[in-house]
């Protein structure tokens, strides 16, 4: 079934306490060289068919529900089937 992915991230100007905590843990775990971590959310929506109507509807639900655009940005994209083979 076709999949639409919505990525939601805290806006760049908004402090991301969770990302900061992850960043703080990296040196303790022996990972060096990472200078910034931002933590967001990924939503995977499965729909019967990719149509303009369906995408418009997902755009609307992302804007009104999945993201709070006061504090977050979002990106809607159609996931290509080839990418479904996760590692």
């Amino acid at each position: 079934m076709p999949r639409v992915v919505v990525d939601v991230m805290p806006k760049p100007e908004i402090l991301d306490p969770q990302g900061k905590a992850v960043l703080g843990a990296l040196p303790r775990l022996g990972f060096t060289g990472v200078t910034e971590v931002r933590q967001g959310k990924r939503f995977e929506l499965e729909i019967p068919e990719i149509t303009d109507d369906a995408l418009a509807q997902i755009e609307k639900l992302a804007e009104t529900f999945l993201a709070n655009t006061v504090i977050e940005n979002y990106v809607v994209r159609v996931e290509e089937p080839a990418q479904e083979k996760a590692k």
Binding site: P10, I14, L15, P17, Q18, A21, N68, V70, I71
Partner: peptide, 15 residues
């Protein structure tokens, strides 16, 4: 969240 008030509420800065 209803936009009856402006702004937002995030995780406490000290987590």
């Amino acid at each position: 969240e209803s936009h009856l008030l402006p702004g937002g509420l995030l995780r406490n800065d000290h987590l």
